[in-house]
Design a protein around this nucleic acid. Structure first.
Lengths: 176, 176
DNA sequence: TCTTGCATGTAAAGGGTTACATGATTTG
DNA sequence: CAAATCATGTAACCCTTTACATGCAAGA
C-alpha cells in the first residue's frame, strides 16, 4: 500500500472551515498557515479537486456573484463532511501522528468533543514515547563512557526525550 | 528535481561510525535507533548498496573470518568519507533541517568542529522560526475573538512557538 | 490589439512502499 | 532430506515534485 493520502482531507477541512474556496485560495492558505507542517504543489491539488468532484465529496460552486476570472470555486458536500468527520475520528497511532496538527487545524470550535478526544489520544501516545525513549537512554548511555563514544546519538536521544516531555506537558495543559 | 536522497548518506554515516556492516546490520540499526526520525525499507536499501559499490563510495568487505551465511559486509571507502564530510558540512536550511538529527547521529566525537557548526546554524534557523511564528500569532490572534473562531489553528500555532522556543533553549545549552 | 500575468492543467521522472521471489542455512 | 527461516533481491504501483502548457483577462 502506498503512502496514505492526506491532501483530500485537508481540502475537506479547509472547505468545511471557510465555505467556498478556489484552488488558488487553498494554495494561499497552504503557504501562509500550513506550510509549517505540510506542503503541496498545485500540480497535485488541481487533479485532486477534480477527483473529489467526481466522488461527490465536493462540488463546483455556482458563481453566484461575479464570474470575474477563470477561477473555479468549490464547496463541501454532505458526503465530504462525513469523510472529514471519519478522518478526524481515526485513532491516533505512531504511523499517523504526523497528521495530528493538520487535524487540529481543521477544528474551529474549542468545545468540539473530537478536539479533546484527539488531545487525549495524542497525550497517551507521547507519554508512551517518553517512557520508551528514557528506557533506551538508560540502556545505551547509562555508562558515561558510552556518551563520549557516540556523542551525536546521545544528543539526539536526549533532545527527543526533552521534546516529547515538553509536548506531554503542553498536551496536559490543554486537556480538561 | 525530485526529493533529495537521504539513504546514501545514512549508509555512509553508519559505515563510518561502525566499520564493517551488512545490510541486515543497517536495517537493524535503522529500526532500533533511527526509526524515531527516519525509516527505510530493505527493498530500498539493497539496490542502494549495490549502486554505492559501483560508485566506489563503499566496497564489499573481504570476509576475513567466517563466511557463515550469504551475508554481504560493506566498508566505507575514501570517496565515501569525502561524500559524508561534504554532506555534514552543507548549510542547514528550512528545506533540509529535517535531516539535522540524522547528521548529528553520524557524529561520534563530541569535539568535532562540524558538530558545533551544525548546532549554531540550527540555532539561528530556529530563532528565526520563533520570530516568524510569534509575529504570525500576533497578527492572527491578537484579538481574543479570533481565538474562539479558529481554536484549532490557534492551538497548533501556540504549540509551534513553544516547541521552537524549547528547541532554541536546548540548542543554546549545547553550544560552547 | 498586443503583451504580460495568472489560475488552472498536463507530462515526465524519481522516490518510496508493499508484495512477491530467490537461494542458502539451519532445524527437525 | 524436507521444511522453515532469513538475508538479499525484484517488480509493480502510487505519491510527489519540477517543468512545461493552456487560455483567459487586465492594462498599455
Amino acid at each position: 500500500m502506498p503512502r496514505p493520502r492526506v491532501l483530500p482531507y485537508i481540502i475537506l477541512g479547509l472547505l468545511n472551515k471557510n465555505g467556498m474556496m478556489s484552488g488558488k485560495d487553498m494554495i494561499s492558505e497552504f503557504k501562509t498557515d500550513i506550510s509549517e507542517f505540510w506542503t503541496v504543489s498545485h500540480s497535485q491539488l488541481y487533479p485532486e479537486l477534480q477527483r473529489m468532484v467526481d466522488e461527490k465529496q465536493i462540488k463546483v460552486a455556482e458563481d453566484v456573484e461575479v464570474k470575474d476570472r477563470k477561477v473555479i470555486n468549490y464547496v463541501i458536500e454532505a458526503k465530504g463532511q462525513e469523510t472529514l468527520k471519519r478522518w478526524l475520528a481515526e485513532p491516533i497511532t505512531l504511523k499517523n501522528d504526523e497528521l495530528t496538527s493538520l487535524k487540529l487545524y481543521c477544528i474551529s470550535d474549542q468545545r468540539a468533543p473530537i478536539l479533546q478526544q484527539i488531545l487525549k489520544q495524542c497525550l497517551a501516545l507521547h507519554q508512551q514515547k517518553v517512557v520508551h525513549l528514557k528506557a533506551r537512554k538508560e540502556l545505551l548511555f547509562g555508562d558515561e563512557l558510552a556518551i563520549k563514544a557516540n556523542y551525536g546519538h546521545y544528543l539526539i536521544l536526549s533532545r527527543a526525550i526533552e521534546r516529547e516531555s515538553d509536548y506531554v506537558n503542553w498536551l496536559q495543559s490543554k486537556i480538561n
